[in-house]
């Protein structure tokens, strides 16, 4: 994900700001890392360049 996506996304649960913690970066894009809600503390992983901003109870790889 591009760093300036931070200006567009928010915590899906309470809509507060997220803090970005970068683990690896490539060609100016965050490849892996963590987004953490500044208010509720929920964490959201960034894997293979894709931020997973689903609430924890919706994160399974299979539907339903």
């Amino acid at each position: 994900m591009k760093r300036d996506l931070m200006d567009i996304v928010c915590c899906p649960l309470d809509k507060h700001d997220l803090d970005l913690d970068v683990e690896s970066e490539e060609d100016g894009e965050v490849v892996s890392g963590t987004l953490t809600c500044a208010d509720c503390g929920e964490t959201y992983p960034i894997e293979d360049g894709i931020p997973n901003l689903l609430p924890p109870d919706m994160r399974e790889e299979t539907p339903a």
Binding site: M1, K2, L5, D7, I8, V9, C10, C11, P12, K15, Y44, G49, I50, P51, N52, L53, L54, P55, M58
Partner: peptide, 13 residues
């Protein structure tokens, strides 16, 4: 530029 999301839940006003 992909974001895994439920509809528009994780986007700012």
């Amino acid at each position: 530029e992909a974001v895994r999301a439920n509809l528009v839940a994780p986007f700012r006003a």
